[in-house]
Amino acid sequence: MHPMDFEYVSSPTLSDAVRQYTRFAQLGKRPMYFGGGTEIITLGRLHQVNPDAVIDLKPIPETQVMAVQQGQLVLGGSITLTQITDAPWLGEAFPLLQETVHEIADRTARNKITIAGNICGTIFYREAVLPFLVCDSKVRTYGPKRGKERSIHRVFNREARLEPSEFIVQLVTDETARTAPFVHIKRRKAGRVGYPIVSAAAIRIDDRIRIAFSGVCPFPFRSSAIETILRQRGLTVRQRVDQAIQRIPSHLILDDYEASRAYRTFVLANVLEEILQRLGGA
């Protein structure tokens, strides 16, 4: 139940979406792009998100693409998490993504949540971004300056960094990274549905482990400093893990109803150790 009224338009094309957005903005209204819409609906009920208009991106064909094109996996922003987990071929094409998004919310919710919606969400876990961060994926966006393709790291730093009328059209991932040895681990307070205490996605390319985290801090991140420490020779696994964790400013480590800061740090250490063991970095 959204107490405040809003307009709804669904856009059939990329340019139409930007046009609609601009039109609402020029009228002094606050438009928002709408994918799965689950956050707009739930946070709206609590007066935490109040758009004047929503622009549904799902009808745009480019956002519904799910294909390998010249070795690159192209995923449209409106693809739902269930489409990802249920596509058997993705089990080979991008197994880390499949495993990571499988742990988000529950299956019925995943039928609605879209990949771009999760990445651009207000709720700070945004776990779907983790595989793209470690794979150095590219993001195709569309906005006032039409289409752009940039590194995920330019588009996403803690949260999506987009111009007001810009939205994610597709995520593009090279074969090398997405088929590399991988691990995803998610630890929750209890059960198999819910937010993470720690969610970590990692791949190994040559002797480098790339790793990204959600749930540790109030934003997802990947840190080159942590990755450098994790491959340092001459240190035990435990030493590397401890030093890696020290790289995270402790005041940024979450301390809330899911877990205290101290326990979350303990869980993070265990997760890192398991990742090093499973990816052969030990």
Binding site: D106, R188, K189, A190, G191, R192, V193, G194, Y195, Y257, E258
Partner: peptide
């Protein structure tokens, strides 16, 4: 319920 994790099916 998303932050109050009562038993679900399978727990």
């Amino acid at each position: 319920f998303r932050v109050y994790p009562i038993h679900r099916y399978g727990d």
